[in-house]
Structure formats: C-alpha cells, structure tokens
C-alpha cells in the first residue's frame, strides 16, 4: 500500500523555502525592483518628483555635458586610484613588517585597525579641524615658532581632493593590513623553509615566493577598496562638503545634490545608474567566481 506523505512531512519539505522567502522578497523588491525603477527614471523627464514622460537617452547626454559631472568623475578617478594604491602599499608594508615576529604586535594591530570602527562622519570631522589652517596643523606649527609653515590643502581647490584621500587612507589602510596579514599567516611555513634552503634572500623570498601567493588577498583588497571608493559619500560631506567650490565633488555627492536639492531627478537617476554599473562591473565577476569555487 502506498502511503502518501502526510501534511506534516510535506510542510517540512516546504518550510525551508517558506522561511527564506521573506528575505528573498525583500531583496527582490527593495534592491532589484528599486534598481529597475531608478534605471527607468533615468530615461524620464522627472524633476522634483518622479514623472513618466519618456525622454530616451537625453538625461545621459545632458549628464555627460555637465562640467559638474565631469569634475565628479575626474575626481573619482584620481581619488580611487590614489586611495587604492596607497592603501595597498601601506597595508602590505605594515603587514610584512608586523609579520617579522614583532614584539608588541598585539598592541599595534588594534591601533592600526580601530579607525575602521568609526563613522566616516567622525573621521571627517576630526580631519576637517586637524587640517584646518586656522586651528589645525598649520596653526600648531605657527605657535611652535615655524611662522612660514603653510598647509592649507583643505582650503585649496588644487589640493583639497588629496585631503579626502588622506582621511580615507587613514580610515581603511589598517583593514587592508589585516587582510594581507591573514594572507601571510596562511602561507605554508615549509615552503618558506624550502626557499631559504634554496638560498633565497629576504627580498627574493618576498618578491618571488610570498607576494605571488598573496594573490587572493590582493584581489579581495582591490574589490573592497574599489567598492568603498565608489560609494564614498559621508567622508566628503563631513570633511569638505564637496568644496572648496566643486573641488572634491564625487559622483555620490553629485547624485544627491542633483536629485534632492537641484530637483533634477532624471539626471540624478542617470548618475546613480552609472555608479551601479561601475560597481557591478567589478563585483559581479568577483562574486560569480567566489560562489562557483564554493561548490
């Protein structure tokens, strides 16, 4: 006699999917649904409120004719490049140095990492006043008697962007250090022993054996830093407010001001779409590879 599965057994089969479904529904609506909506808006004549008059690529062509946007993406390119390179260099150097059986490593590591626990708003506030010529480093040097000392980058259109880089590097380079340190600690000691037996110098040991093995850490650092760079918003708001002038305007601040203060929602949506595409171009292949390996 064939006994059909009873209700409880069938419920057990469906329960897992049932439990997962609210999360999936939320993500589908609030993430992917919203993305579609914003992308759609970027093709409409929305101003202060969403409106559904189709204008094709007009917002995008307007966007790329705006000098404001051009400044934002140029700044983005400079900022992202410097931020990623400097963070990687400092992170890798500190990790290698810390890996030399350093006395006090346990005290140094948390000092390098704590900025990561702070809000970008706090970081921005602190650096804003430290870099302020009126009360910060410049003023300090003057009061110490070095009258000719000048450090006014944060007020200078040419250099203000580099202060954003400085504060951002301060916040994240310790984290990059931790990623590389984990990578270094994961390297098989016997390989190092073998290389030393082969007569490799320290320099060659790192250049030929160790750093090539840190490839996964480099990849992760690149992905995380790139995604942080593109999303940088709070730091600029707190540190420079995008100024002086438009000197530190980034796509994230551009999007916010065009959408919510200048009432150009269509253009704001177009800029958000471009930000998403940039991040997707980096994240999708990475996530795809990560998830496929796990099988």
């Amino acid at each position: 006699m064939q006994s059909a599965p009873d209700f409880k057994t069938r419920l057990q089969v469906w329960l897992p999917k049932l439990v997962l479904s609210p999360s999936i529904a939320m993500v589908l609506v609030f993430v992917y649904g919203f993305i579609l909506f914003t992308v759609y808006l970027s093709f409409t004549d929305s101003r202060i409120l969403p409106s559904y008059g189709w204008v094709g690529w007009e917002n995008y062509s307007k966007l790329f004719r705006l000098s404001h946007w051009e400044i934002a993406i140029t700044n983005m390119a400079i900022f992202a490049l410097l931020y990623m390179v400097i963070c990687t260099v400092i992170g890798l150097a500190l990790a290698i140095f810390l890996d030399q059986k350093i006395r006090g490593e346990g005290a140094l590591r948390p000092i390098y990492l704590y900025p990561m626990a702070l809000s970008f708003i706090v970081t921005g506030t602190a650096w804003k006043w430290i870099l302020d010529p009126g009360i910060g480093i410049e003023n300090t040097m003057h009061s110490l008697g070095w009258e000719s000392f000048a450090f006014d980058w944060i007020k200078n259109r040419e250099y203000a962007l580099y202060t954003v880089v400085l504060a951002a590097v301060w916040q994240t380079s310790g984290f990059v250090m931790a990623m590389f340190l984990a990578g270094l600690r994961g390297i098989d000691n016997e390989i190092l022993k073998a290389a030393q037996m082969d007569g490799a110098s320290n320099w060659n040991l790192y250049r030929r054996i160790i750093i090539p093995q840190l490839r996964p850490a480099f990849l992760s650092a690149f992905v995380i830093l790139a995604h942080l760079a593109i999303k940088t918003y709070d730091l600029v708001i707190a540190l420079t407010g995008g100024g002086p002038g438009r000197a530190t305007e980034l796509p994230a601040t551009f999007m916010y001001s065009y959408t919510f203060t200048r009432n150009q929602m269509g253009i704001g949506a177009a800029s958000a779409t471009i930000m998403l595409m940039t991040i997707a171009a980096i994240m999708v292949p990475y996530l795809y590879a990560e998830l496929r390996e796990k099988r």
Binding site: V27, F30, F34, F37, K231, A252, M255, G268, L276, I279
Partner: peptide
C-alpha cells in the same frame, strides 16, 4: 546559490540607486 548571489550583490550596490524609490 543564485538566490544567495542576488542577496550578496545587494550588499555592494551604491545606495544612491535605491534612494529615490525608497523615499517614495
């Protein structure tokens, strides 16, 4: 895995892309 990938990607989107509809 695909569903998980969709959830994971959501962590990395620039939130500017959802600001307008979320406000609505």
């Amino acid at each position: 895995t695909i569903l998980f990938g969709l959830m994971l990607f959501a962590c990395f989107i620039p939130f500017q892309i959802v600001l307008i509809p979320m406000a609505r």
